[in-house]
Design a protein around this nucleic acid. Sequence first.
DNA 1: GGCAAGCCTGAATACGTTTACAATCATCCT
DNA 2: AGGATGATTGTAAACGTATTCAGGCTTGCC
Lengths: 329, 329
Amino acid sequence: MDVAHLAGVSVAAVSRAFTPGASIAPATKQRVMEAAATLGYQPNVIARSLIQRRSNLVGLLMSGWNNFGYVDVLRRLTERLEAEGYEVILKSVLEPEQVSECVRQVLRYQVAAIAVVSEALPAEITAECTQRGVPVVLVNRIGTGSGNSSVSLDGVYLGHQIADFLLAREHRRIALLQGRADINFLTDAMNAISERVAAAAGCEIAARLDGVLGYDAGRRAINELFQQDQRPDAVFCTFDETAIGVVDGARFDLGVRVPEDLAVIGNSNRASAAWASHELTSVEYPRDEVIDHCIRILLARLDDPELEPEVVLIKPDLVIRSSTRGKPV
Amino acid sequence: MDVAHLAGVSVAAVSRAFTPGASIAPATKQRVMEAAATLGYQPNVIARSLIQRRSNLVGLLMSGWNNFGYVDVLRRLTERLEAEGYEVILKSVLEPEQVSECVRQVLRYQVAAIAVVSEALPAEITAECTQRGVPVVLVNRIGTGSGNSSVSLDGVYLGHQIADFLLAREHRRIALLQGRADINFLTDAMNAISERVAAAAGCEIAARLDGVLGYDAGRRAINELFQQDQRPDAVFCTFDETAIGVVDGARFDLGVRVPEDLAVIGNSNRASAAWASHELTSVEYPRDEVIDHCIRILLARLDDPELEPEVVLIKPDLVIRSSTRGKPV
DNA sequence: GGCAAGCCTGAATACGTTTACAATCATCCT
DNA sequence: AGGATGATTGTAAACGTATTCAGGCTTGCC
């Protein structure tokens, strides 16, 4: 190598100069560093990974980009991993069927670990990762029974929180607008709400729709519900944008007052939920906590590959604002 | 290698089996593939990169994550690069001073190209990339004179559009709220507005503030402007969130009507700008066009490293909604 | 049958590191 | 002085793949 030649040392010395804690004389190290600087040399991490049979890369598979404020999750996850000395290989998962192919792709880069946001993993892929000793963590998917670690929210708890909140305020006809059916903790939440509402005297689920995702969809949905005389007096949406669409639909299209005539609850507490124009009651999405668990789970398994999968369920809080009535009646 | 042994062939044959277009008999290829499948073998891209002296990785450096709807830029850029056979190595640039270090980090991975979103590059780093033949493209920074290709918006054009729009509607006291001073095309836009407004009889810039970024900041800013009797009759904000904060501040805190008493214009036309609650006039951020240019510039230079840097300036359109008065008077 | 022309294949080398091992050297102690 | 100790250093062998080269095989043609 040129640097070794210019510094008048062996390649091994160059390697040691760039390896923290290696046995090298300060003077030699400096000579190497100067030679490297004049030649614009950067160590080839690729070659290092090859011989160490493991890279400092972590595969990050993203799906459902626009949900839950995943930008922040992506950003923080990246920053935390960088702080731990890893680099992120980012992949966008377009279709659920592609997730296996994506995992295989990043495995080819000898990634040290894999994080999957908003997708589940087929069993055979989980097996391949396990066999190679590559730890995997799923975010916003529950890994129970799949052999994967996961960090998600407690859907049943969430459902009970919402049902109790609405029932305590004497709402009797509750509509549920779900965005994506494949986010299992949200389905859990929907079911939990349904059960508890059905058990309350005089209360019912006015409607339960799937595939209602985004502002326009929410606005359209509330219009349709009111046209069909299935008028609910409360709506829970699995995404804030949908909920805001519902509020605007009620106010601007139907002349229905929020929260007097219709209570609206969103989910994930995006920044826009706090805006004065909507003051949307929502469910806090504990991004920091989710990320902390992710990092902890991955690092622990990089340290000890034999650890069992860990399933974390976080209990989220309701953030109460004025799109719902103030006090329990 | 195990796979070669199981298939009863040489390692070279395995390599050829996984190299599209290589000279290998169909039967042999199939035997190799079957052996690979049973062993769960994936080719080691790291080793391939080593020998080919170039990886299929592209460094993607992100800054200002929450501005301009960069999520979509990040996502689409990733997807386009994947479609071209590249993988993305993502880095978060926390401070402008870190950008050099980030570039060096990704260079160690022998990246084929680098895209930098929302940061400029110091000259010496540009030189290092050029020397290595690694093409670079800056997004939302103008590369003129720096030796970098770049894709950005035409700030002067943008400024003139806005100034002309407001002046034609007889606004006379215009306030400018800038988020980050380091986005050079926005500074260009601000200057262009100032010039043109100053040149118009009876018109003036009522205020020009920097560091006003986000909903809360916008809401606070409009309150302060009105308290200090620097009342503007029109505000241009460099970010939609800020503009929405201004609208809400005007309506809910000051009782000022939008657009009758105060016209508000945002920038980058996020989804929330279209919501019925605000109907914010904004500047379209041409994401697809920006990304198309990025990809085109990088691919062209991967093909021919000798190409000169190219500076693209896109002229953005105004999206007119009801946070500004309808017709020119 | 003999020959040329292709197609496949394996052996060997290279890619830029890390690391075990051995060798060198200075230092210090007895 | 002589040996032991420890710090530094170089040598050489890996890591898993791509690729050149030469040789073996098949095929088709005269």
